[in-house]
Structure formats: C-alpha cells, structure tokens
Design a protein around this nucleic acid. Structure first.
Lengths: 213, 213
DNA sequence: GAAATCTAGCTAACGCTGTTAAAGTTACAA
DNA sequence: TTGTAACTTTAACAGCGTTAGCTAGATTTC
C-alpha cells in the first residue's frame, strides 16, 4: 500500500507542476497575446527554468497543445449542449454560430487550435472532433436529398471555411469596422444557399416547412 | 545637364540594387516558403549584407511589402479583366472565384498580402483596393433592393470572409482532401443566399425567377 | 542499511532570428 | 582640396527555441 501511495504522490506532484506551468502559460498568453508568448516570458512568470518546461512538455508546441486540449474540452462540452437532434440544419447553424463566437472571444486559443504555424504541422487531433460531429449532420442532409449541389464534403468544407474566415478576419483586422450581423447573416445565407427547404422533397407537409431554411 | 544625368544614374543604380534584392527575396520565398524566409538567407543569396537591405527597405515588413506591391499590381490587372459591368452578381462571383484561385496558387504571396503577422499590423494599403472595388458592386445590389437581409457591408464582409476561409483552409491543411468543387459550390451558395433574384423585386415576372441566383 | 537507478530541476550554452550603431568607402559638389 | 551625402560593411545586441551536462533527492534493489 505504501509503495503504491508513494507512486501516486509522485504522479500528483508531477501533475501539480504541470498545472502551475499551464496556468502561467495561460496568464502570459492572456496579457500578451499569442505573438508575445515565449518560453522565456513563461519561465520568468512561473519560477521554473526552461529545461523544466521542456522536461514536462517536450517542446513549445507540446506545451501549447496541452493547454489547448483542456480549453477545447471545455468548449466541446458547451457545443454538445447546442444539439438539435431533430433538425440537422438548426444544429449546423447553432454550432457554426457558437464556434465563431468562441473564436472571436478567445483569439489566442483559436489561433493555437485552428491556425497551424506551418503548413505541415497539423492542429491537435482533438480539434477535429467537431468536424466529425458536423460531418454527420451533413451526411444526414445529403441522404435526405436536401443539398442543392455538391456533396456533403463540399458543403461541410464550405461552412467550415466561412467560419474560419469570419473568425480570422475579425481577429486580425480590428481596424475594420465589422458589421455586427455579419456572422449571423453570412451563416444564414450560406445555409440558405446550400440546403433546400424540407418541403421541397418530402411530399407530406405536416409542418409549415420552416420560415428560415 | 551633367548634374541631372548623374542624379539619374544614381537613382537608377538605387533601383537596380532594390531590383536585385527583391528578386532574391522572391527566390528565397519560392523555394523555402514564407516560414523559412529570413534576412540571413536572403543576404546569403543576393550577396549584399543585412544593413544594406535595411537601408533600402527599412525593415523586413517593408521589404516584403515592396515585393508584394509589385505582385499585387499584376494580380489587380487580371482582376480588372473580369469585370461584368452589367451584372453585379456575376461580377462578384467572378472576382471571388479568381481571388480564391490566386490565393491557392500563390500561398506565400497571399499570406504576405492578406494575413498580417500581428493583429495591429495592417496589410499593405494596396491590398484594400479590391475590397473597395467589390463594395461598389454590393452597394449597387443594395440600392436595387436585392439583398435578402443585412446591409451591403455585411454582405461584402460575408463574401470576403468566405474567400479568406477557403484560401487559408486549403493552404494550411494540405492533409485534408478538399472537395474539388468547394470553392465554386460555396461561393455560388453564399451568393444565392445573400442576393435575391432580380425578378423578385420587379413586379414584372417575365423570367421564371430562379435559374441561378 | 548500502548501492544503484531514476526523476526533477538547474546552469550554461548553441544556433538561429530581426535589427542597429559605428566605421569605412565611394562619388559628387563647392 | 575639402566637405557632404549616399552606400556598404563589420561587429554586435537582445531575443528566440532548444539541449547537453550536471546536481540533489527520492525510489527501488540487493
């Protein structure tokens, strides 16, 4: 029992150190932004030295990935709460808008999660979960014959691209006065253009076929 | 006469040096990509030393801006050739698609022109010309009452965001297998969702009100 | 209990980056 | 000839991500 508890205590200490480093990472990130973040600044803040950080996280990317995995988990939970299991279009609309809002409110996290530093460096695997989730909704619409043109991949990538463009535009061009409705307007418009209303295909029109899509 | 010609010769020498540095910049950029570009690599290639580059271009951003101003001028000329003065929607469609195609074919130039390195660093002023040109088309549609919702700013920023998202997605995620039709599909869909067909507004319904937009 | 092993953290350094101060060189003007 | 201005260089600064090599301490093994 003692041996086991010793191991546990050591593991606990390890996670405590990781916790402290991650918290300082978040601090530095928050008050300097992504561009200003550096290992030097981090170790000045958290008291440890650079090699300790490397010992625990491998390299800078590993450190940021670890931080982002936590943040993404939180975000994924809020996205799960938005599900409209009965209406694929409303599901896509809600997730897309929430996603854009998240990106604009947390530009540093967004950059780390979805804007790879180099073309070959893929973002953390956890960031693809959402895409898979959305792909399901698109397949559903495709099987229901409600995509006006193109396949479900094309539609999924369209919405994905629009969201990314909305976020990075508003992040990187604060000098532009962005329309307050651009996010809602563009997502609504794209869905309107991609998806045909339910009534067009199913002959039974028990429901009034929706004012929106 | 002699004095003047001397001055001219000096100016000519100056532009020659600038030309040589810019050409080497292009070379380094082409075979290493944007990430791998550095002043050191540049001066190794072009024979001059770093302070010479700084003397002529101010700093790294100035050097890249100078290169990009040239490249953008070429690009703007090809865009001008696409104008459909009689049909604002077709004009927007053609310019948007050409723009995305340009971005994907010249990722390094695109990054420099439209992806500022820091949130406060605005892209070169020359890059805004196109936006102004497109804004005119949107105002035209707005005045014709053909925007389904939102104002012309919102619509313009929607299309702009979509284009940017399409390009940066396909640049930075070569691991994803992008749909070959995603650019056309998404631009068509967004325009379809943003702009109502001409017949909807004018009471005379001589045309069947919906082939494309 | 003593020896071997493993872990965590440190100091100091490497090679790279953008940038610049200061000095030397060259060409033209007075 | 002397002065002035532009041009180019050498040498360096401050910062970056990263790592080799060492020490102190805890854990395991004999």
């Amino acid at each position: 029992m003692s041996a086991k508890s010793q191991q546990d205590r050591r593991r606990e200490q390890r996670t405590q150190v990781r916790r402290a480093i991650l918290d300082s990472t978040e601090d530095v990130l928050l008050d300097g932004g992504y561009e200003a973040f550096s290992i030097r600044r981090l170790v000045d803040r958290c008291g440890y030295t650079a090699p300790t950080v490397y010992h625990h996280f491998g390299d800078k990317a590993g450190l940021l990935d670890a931080l982002l995995a936590e943040r993404y988990a939180k975000f994924a939970r809020t996205l799960k709460r938005l599900q409209h299991p009965d209406d694929a279009v409303e599901h896509l609309r809600a997730v897309a808008k929430a996603f854009v809002r998240f990106g604009i409110r947390h530009p540093d996290h967004y950059q780390l999660l979805f804007m790879p530093r180099a073309p070959d460096h893929a973002p953390p695997a956890v960031a693809d979960e959402m895409r898979v989730q959305l792909d399901q909704a698109w397949s559903q619409l495709w099987e229901a014959g409600r995509l006006r043109s193109g396949g479900p991949e094309s539609a999924a990538q369209s919405l994905w691209s629009l969201c990314h463009g909305l976020i990075s535009g508003q992040i990187f061009r604060p000098d532009v006065t962005w329309s307050k409705t651009v996010t809602d307007d563009s997502i609504d418009a794209l869905l309107l253009g991609l998806v045909s209303p339910e009534a067009e295909r199913t002959p039974n029109r028990s429901r009034p076929a929706k004012a929106r899509a």
